[in-house]
Design a protein around this nucleic acid. Structure first.
Length: 872
RNA sequence: GCGGGCGUGAUGGAAUGGUAGACAUACGGGACUUAAAAUCCCGGGGCUGUAUAGCCGUGUGGGUUCAAGUCCCACCGCCCGCACCA
């Protein structure tokens, strides 16, 4: 054999990328009659450069897109940029660059990087959310939502990030700190714009059951986030007091059945009555001040002790006439859930129990656990929250919890305080309306105008877009739009008098809540063309990180509903299938001074316990640390550009898809990428060898059994690899390809000495199939091989190899023979052999006969074509 | 605390209740080479010195089953999410 030149991705990859672009291989027509498939990866924020997480994400999506395309689908696989947001403004502050320039420069860089990966995107549909063309339509959506009653403006306590000087959504506050700045979040009162996502709480919750192609984990997280709880709102009467004019307090409870066990009532420190009372009560004022210092969500408070102050007021016990419950203000009662007031039943709620023990309040059990002696049952340190029978509760005695809830609901509904029923059945949700106001420049302007006479006036649709001004300064804190000399000064659209333009911009999560719909017709004058959007949506397979399980995915689900209501879409759920991929992780390295070191600067030696690392340049020792998510701060990053220029995009893609199941983390290793690179060369070599063999003069016939075995291997691989890709089991598809390649290599070696015509045909068929099978993962290599094999056109247009079903069926099968469940032998039997025959064959085996020792087996289990178990 | 997930060779990981460890990586041995790299071949869960033989083996302990990595119960460990939501 002549020497085979190595495959050179540096030459081949750009060549094919150019060919795909020139032939518009991945440009999608909306009127293409073939069946549609929409595969979408979460679009990136243009932070500056592509990272390995992107490579993994887009490699997965591309495999699916290319595979579906090969299977004859009209595949929509677009890419864009989630381009508004704070980092651009931070960069502006730090380096003096303009957010727009900074963002578009980053996009250019990252687009170039993505293009070197050979992804089958339809780049004609690309857009950035900061394009006027896009945010203009977002402003139109806002106006339509406003008109449809889906937007409100209200004074509200907001999470204020003092460092970024902006409002954050609850979802953007993590452990009491801003999700980007990490600064401690404060509470402030501001008038804000809200999208009324809470109108859809129940719908968003119920529809989760229908999202069967979503991970359970994500559905559970959304369920918890929506936080439905069914209970009662109860009206309690206050004892008359000179301290307040208030006569009643409303509480929310999910356990009205435990009302006879109530021993106190507690208000949130933010409750209006608490503030009123604090005016004349220094201890109370101190607690409230303390509470505000910490806010509701800080870590400190989570572990903080229950604290309360007795207001001295009494509440009439609602079911025990003549008895009075003390009224406390307590730090553990939240104002923004329920009514901001509770009744405490210490025996059956742990928080109430902790509080009662601290302040010496009664603990009266009213739920008796099953099979428990009421004389003996006591509450010690743990509240009893399980099932049981109600007791100590007069007319509820003897009922189970659910029955007692129904009974007490009837009771309270029928009684009135003044003209109000004392209790109403109510469902509460944790989900709040979505505050979208941001006091920032680099976002979509909210298209309204404030007029002294006419109040809030929507910008007329004909006046859109409300464009961001380019001439802004970032030299002082706060919102640059607000500081702009002229931008906000406009005439009222109704009266023409001087008015003020809204200077808040929208939360960037708004931008990403409908981009998937815009991709279906990205240049339309309206946000969508419903007839077209409805053809493509919902997205068949959405792929991205699990970090968006709540925020982005819940907002998008709301947006689809809102767009449905306003006529922009014809469905409620945007994503039919969701896949959350794992992270790319890497070892961390530190030098002797404790500084983080880039993997690229480290030389590794040895293995296992003797593994050690040193700086490549100086030889100084380096400590090997934990394997963690790649992050700039720990420097355990590998630059995709370097990998692509060293090994090629196909190698990087292949490695990202190998080994680890896609939902799990994958560890980036030098050895792994080397292995992927070697495999690339092996395929190339195999293809070259097959070409040489095909060119040799035929020599007789290859053994029919070998040919059949090879053909079976090939057709089986085609069959299972398709299933594996369909099921997003890329690691298994990769393993199958390895097996196929190994098999074909062996067959090739066997043919070299005696290339029978029948063998050469089988080899050719196998190699052709292999080249097509690797196309979704290693598209460039696949094209080069395809061309070398002299095939017409490109693999990208070649379809998927056909499976000969007959070859999936065996005539004989190896059956394991067990004795008492332990494997003792194997037998090759014809497929579908009669049980009598199998039994006879099995019993005549030496091993079996020996173990039976003349006795008859108790039982013989025969699983046809799989296994035989002899029980003795 | 609540919710979800996971635990398999040196490593990443395979395995509709039916031959555990596919495939890959690392490693060991060999071939080729002046040498190295590359490539090719062979080996490989542990133990019984040899293995065509046997025993043990999927975090631990029990259970269901002819048969359990897989199902059930309890426990241990790790990871993720939520977290005073009444």
């Amino acid at each position: 054999m002549k020497t085979i030149e190595r495959y050179n991705p540096r030459v081949e990859e750009p060549r094919w990328q150019k060919a795909w672009e020139e032939q518009k291989s991945f440009v999608v027509a909306n009127d293409d009659p073939r069946e549609r498939y929409y595969v979408l990866e979460m679009f990136p924020y243009p932070s500056g450069r592509i990272h390995m997480g992107h490579v993994r994400n887009y490699a997965m999506g591309d495999v699916l897109a290319r595979y579906k395309r090969a299977r004859g689908f009209n595949v929509l696989h677009p890419m864009g940029w989630d381009a508004f947001g704070l980092p651009a403004e931070n960069a502006a502050k730090q380096t003096g660059s303009h957010p727009k320039m900074w963002t578009y420069a980053n996009i250019d860089t990252m687009r170039k990087q993505l293009k070197t990966m050979g992804l089958s995107f339809d780049w004609t549909r690309e857009f950035a959310t900061c394009d006027v063309d896009y945010y203009q339509r977002q402003q139109k959506l806002f106006l339509d939502f406003l008109a449809a009653g889906l937007v409100t403006r209200k004074q509200s306590k907001v999470n204020w990030d003092p460092e970024d000087e902006t409002v954050l959504a609850n979802e953007q506050v993590i452990d009491g700190r801003g999700w980007r700045s990490g600064a401690l979040v404060e509470q402030r009162e501001l008038v804000q714009w809200f999208l009324k996502i809470s109108d859809y709480s129940e719908d968003l919750l119920e529809a989760l059951d229908g999202l069967t192609d979503w991970p359970d984990k994500v559905r559970t997280m959304q369920r918890n986030w929506i936080g439905k709880s069914e209970g009662m709102r109860l009206l309690f009467e206050l004892e008359q007091s000179p301290m307040t004019k208030a006569a009643t307090i409303e509480v929310f409870t999910t356990r009205p059945d435990t009302i006879f066990g109530a021993s106190f009532v507690a208000l949130s420190p933010d409750h209006p009555l608490a503030s009123e009372l604090a005016a004349n009560d220094p201890a109370l004022a101190a607690l409230i001040a303390e509470f505000h210092r910490h806010g509701t969500a800080t870590e400190a408070l989570e572990k903080a002790e229950k604290m309360g102050v007795d207001t001295g007021l009494g509440v009439k016990h609602p079911v025990k006439p003549g008895e009075t419950l003390p009224l406390y203000v307590a730090n553990f009662v939240l104002m923004d859930y329920g009514t901001g007031a509770i009744f405490g039943c210490p025996a059956h709620d742990q928080r109430d129990l902790d509080f009662a023990r601290k302040y010496g309040l009664d603990v009266t059990p009213v739920v008796l656990p099953p099979e428990t002696d009421p004389e003996i049952f006591e509450i010690a340190d743990d509240a009893y929250v399980g099932a049981g029978t109600i007791y100590h509760s007069e007319f509820l005695d003897g009922l189970q919890i659910d029955a007692a809830k129904r009974e007490i609901a009837r009771y309270f509904s029928a009684r009135h305080i003044g003209n109000r029923p004392q209790g109403i059945v109510e469902t509460n949700y944790r989900l709040r309306d979505w505050g979208i106001s941001r006091q920032r420049y680099w976002g979509c302007p909210i298209p309204v105008i404030h007029c002294e006479t006419h109040g809030v006036v929507p910008v007329p649709a004909s006046d859109l877009p409300v464009k961001l001004p380019d001439d802004v300064a970032f030299d002082r804190p706060g919102n640059p739009l607000d500081h702009h000399p002229t931008w906000k000064h406009v005439a009222c659209p109704i009266c023409g008098e001087p008015a003020r333009r809204e200077t808040d911009t929208m939360d960037t999560f708004v931008d990403s809540s409908w981009y998937f719909a815009r991709f279906t017709e990205p240049h339309a004058a309206e946000p969508t063309i419903p007839a077209i959007a409805n053809l493509w949506l919902p997205v068949d397979q959405y792929i991205g990180g699990v970090e968006h399980a709540i925020l982005h995915l819940l907002y998008s689900r709301f947006f689809a509903r809102a767009m449905h209501k306003t006529g922009h879409l014809g469905m409620d759920e945007p994503f039919k299938g969701l896949f959350t991929q794992g992270m790319v992780v890497h070892e961390t390295y530190r030098d002797q001074a404790g500084g983080w070191v880039l993997p690229a600067d480290v030389t590794l030696e040895g293995m296992g316990d003797t593994r050690h690392a040193s700086l490549t340049l100086t030889g100084a020792p380096v400590d090997i640390g934990a394997i963690e998510k790649m992050s700039k701060s720990k420097k355990n990053v590998v630059d995709p550009d370097e990998i692509v220029s060293t090994y090629g995009a196909d190698t990087a893609r292949w490695f990202m898809l190998s080994d680890s199941p896609p939902e799990r983390d994958v560890q980036w290793t030098e050895a792994g990428i080397e292995g992927a690179s070697r495999f690339q060369q092996r395929i190339w070599k195999l293809v070259q060898e097959s070409i040489e063999i095909a060119a040799m003069p035929a020599a007789g016939m290859t053994a029919a059994a070998d040919v059949e075995a090879t053909r079976k291997l090939v057709h089986r691989a085609v069959n299972t690899i398709g299933d594996d890709i369909e099921g997003l089991r890329f690691n298994r598809a990769v393993a199958q390809i390895y097996e196929l390649t190994n098999g074909l290599s062996k067959f090739t070696a066997a043919l070299e000495s005696a290339p029978g015509a029948n063998g050469v045909d089988a080899l050719r068929e196998g190699v052709d199939a292999l080249v097509q099978l690797i196309a979704p993962m290693m598209p460039h290599l696949s094209e080069t091989c395809w061309a070398a094999l002299g095939k017409p056109g490109m693999v990208a247009d070649a379809g998927w190899p056909l499976v000969d079903q007959a070859l999936l069926v065996d005539s004989s099968v190896v059956v394991a023979i067990q004795v008492n469940g332990k494997r003792r032998a194997e037998l090759t039997l014809p497929v579908g052999a009669a049980k009598e025959l199998v039994e006879q064959e099995v019993l005549s085996l030496d091993v079996i006969a020996r173990m039976l020792d003349g006795a008859a087996p108790k039982k013989i289990i025969i699983v046809p074509d799989r296994i035989v178990n002899v029980v003795i």
